[in-house]
């Protein structure tokens, strides 16, 4: 008996254990860090011969399952700030719609694929590098005796956000903030997510941690909530406009990813915040290096099907 399965939209045959295994690994990361995993899964699927457009769209479909599973697990743990999530989501939808128009203009100008990749590299490098250094410093500080517990100096960003109107209490996150901030940041992440073709979890997580100052465990659950709705939107749009959602591929991936997400959510409760951040930083930096490698190493052929990444 062979273990291959035919994917009707991708028009490719893949090993069944391989697809389920990929889902499991990416689902684990999703539950652990609150990222959708699209930034990791899509390149992996392309590597195994799935057309890029089908890989991205089908991945969105499976992220719906993984993030629903992860979000549900985090909800039971009390780690989802729905109020914050809804503000970010509204901003994300607005930004995502604008981003789709922007990418159309970029494609007409040519070389949009290069721009997408270099944006990936820069974003991943910046976010991963910053998280890595910050988490490392935080871990070192905890090891040394804290001599002085001086009141930290308030940054310009913090002072500006305090001046904004409609200051609201986000009880779950334990912060008081104007809804304008998550709305604005949601728009920014939405634009970037649309350009880069991902759910935006790996950008949203650092934004919540560093700009919204939310506690890491609430960040993971809330990010999954936002990723869930973004990917529902993307799946329906891709199925309608481009016919690129391979349901069979998504179904197999989600078998693995939903299990992985549950395991990840449990693991995340056992790992300290700084450790969690440093692991995510390493993951983000590894993906960045992989993408940079793809940009500087000569491709195996100088001809590629139009529309690929």
């Amino acid at each position: 008996m062979h273990w291959n399965i035919y994917l009707p939209i991708a028009h490719a045959s893949l090993s069944l254990p391989l697809v389920v295994g990929l889902g499991l690994v990416v689902g684990l990361l999703s539950g652990l860090f609150g990222v959708g995993g699209g930034f990791l899964m899509t390149p992996l699927l392309i590597m195994f011969g799935i057309p890029p457009t089908v890989a991205a769209a089908s991945d969105s479909n499976q992220i719906v399952a993984a993030s629903a599973s992860g979000c549900f697990a985090h909800y039971r743990l009390g780690n989802v700030d729905f109020k914050m999530g809804i503000y970010l989501l509204i901003g994300g939808v607005v930004g995502g719609t604008g981003g789709v128009q922007l990418i159309k203009v970029l494609r007409q100008m040519g070389n949009a694929d290069f721009l997408i990749k270099i944006t990936y590299v820069l974003m991943l490098g910046f976010v991963g590098g910053y998280m890595f250094i910050e988490s490392l410093q935080a871990m070192r500080k905890k090891k040394t005796v804290e001599y002085v517990q001086a009141e930290p100096k308030e940054s310009l960003y913090a002072r500006m956000t305090k001046r904004l109107p409609y200051q609201t209490n986000f009880t779950k996150s334990g912060i008081v903030l104007s809804p304008v901030v998550p709305l604005f940041l949601g728009v920014l992440v939405g634009v970037l997510a649309a350009i880069m073709g991902v759910g935006g979890g790996f950008i949203m997580v650092p934004v919540m941690v560093y700009l919204l100052r939310m506690p890491m465990h609430v960040v993971v659950g809330t990010s999954l909530f936002q990723v869930l709705f973004t990917c529902i939107d993307v799946t329906i749009m891709q199925a309608y406009s481009n016919r690129t959602v391979d349901f069979v591929l998504a179904l197999l991936l989600l078998v693995g990813s939903t299990i992985g997400a549950q395991i990840g959510a449990r693991l995340s409760a056992k790992i300290k915040d700084d450790q969690l951040k440093i692991y995510l930083a390493i993951l983000v930096l590894l993906v960045m290096v992989k993408m940079l490698y793809g940009l500087v190493v000569p491709p195996h052929t100088l001809l590629a099907f139009h529309g690929g990444h």
């Binding site: 499976q62 629903a68 979000c71 529902i232 349901f247 939903t258």
Partner: peptide, 15 residues
Amino acid sequence: GVSAVIIALLAGLIM
């Protein structure tokens, strides 16, 4: 598209 989303949601929640 809607069916794919509903099945994914159900699979996630059942899991």
